[in-house]
Computed example of a mutant assay.
Amino acid sequence: HQDNPVKQATRFGEDAALVGAPETNFSTINTSTGKNTGFAVYGQGTYSITSKFDVIAGLRFDTEKKSLSVLGEYQKDPDPDPVFETRPDTSASANFTAFSPKLGIAYKANNHTNLFLTYSRGFRTGGLTPLAQGGDPSQPPLYPFDPEYSDNIELGIKNTFLRNMLRINLSFFASRITDAQIPTLILPDAVTITRNAGKLSTKGAELEIAANVVKGLEIDYSLGITDAVYKDLKISSNGSEEDLSGNRQIFTPGSTSMLAMQYSTVPFKVAVPFSIVVRGEWQRIGKQYFDLANNISQPSYNLVNAKAGFSSKNYELMFWWRNIGGKKYIAYAYDFGAVHLGNPETLGVTISA
């Protein structure tokens, strides 16, 4: 169960005309109260056909009820009280259920190598979204959007070598998503709406390598490559339909990789044993897009992080240094051009128990 009350004001100043607002120096206030209640049941079993072949089958059941109430108000500066309602206080609810199967086979080539092939059906629940009315009271304040479904296939191999000191895993995946849920920020209403607007195709590969080089020293490397393209994407833009089929999925880097080295040692025996831990990380994030038209993007960039400290069974003290060198990069961006930069070079300490 989740309660999600939100009250948000967007102020338009002297330059409000740049986003199409009809006047200046005013605020729009959007208040929404959402409630989600749901549960899921999942079961999976494995049947061994032979000592080397296994068949895997699973089934998941999801059900969820969503309710949402919205209220829109107009406030003229410098009056502290809203002048009138732009969207009446309206409530709506919707129910969603789905059965999601999983099937797979696994083959044990030897004691160190396993291969697998799986198919699974994915489900992302639908919901309720406010519509940007643009002053037209004939439009419904709330509109339900459908669930998003995916068909997923994964083929992989898992290996261990050198008495489990070296692990190498490799997998390939492909996914087809229908009724893709597309969020869009609408101005000047400053409302994010969600619609089922297309089909998405994703394919890629993942590599994981983990090695215990010497006692206390671990080296991990991971690489992910993703090719995610909207096969069918049509959205409304300025009163007409815009075909964005073939564009890249938003917020999805083409590649991600990380190399981490960590060394831990017990310096000496004491009443409360503890370890000294030193860790360094290098990350590379590939190019990604932040708008459906693929006009706003962040090229590939690198991040370097480090931490060192003490760790025991019940306590941990870590000094950390993130984004060493202060790389500037876009972490998030909006359709109209505003961006959020990633966190700058930061030093800190964390104590956990």
Score class of each variant (00 low, 15 high):
29 I>A: 01
3 D>H: 13
340 H>V: 10
100 S>I: 07
31 T>K: 04
207 L>V: 13
328 K>S: 09
3 D>N: 14
341 L>M: 09
181 Q>P: 06
290 F>P: 00
304 V>R: 12
321 W>Y: 15
146 D>N: 05
284 R>V: 05
20 G>Q: 03
144 P>I: 00
5 P>Y: 14
23 E>P: 02
321 W>P: 04
191 V>Q: 01
275 S>C: 05
191 V>K: 00
232 D>W: 08
138 S>I: 10
181 Q>V: 06
237 S>W: 13
299 P>G: 14
225 I>S: 08
294 N>E: 07
34 G>M: 06
294 N>I: 02
50 T>Q: 11
5 P>R: 10
283 Q>Y: 05
190 A>G: 10
262 Q>E: 15
41 V>E: 08
234 K>G: 01
176 R>F: 11
297 S>V: 08
144 P>L: 03
237 S>F: 13
11 R>S: 12
116 F>W: 14
261 M>Y: 11
53 F>H: 08
216 G>W: 05
286 G>K: 08
100 S>W: 03
259 L>D: 09
37 T>P: 01
80 P>F: 15
141 P>N: 05
158 K>Q: 02
65 K>C: 01
137 P>E: 14
39 F>S: 09
342 G>E: 02
306 A>R: 04
102 K>H: 09
351 I>G: 08
314 N>K: 14
9 A>L: 12
114 N>Y: 07
48 S>V: 06
6 V>M: 15
81 D>W: 10
86 T>Q: 01
335 D>Q: 06
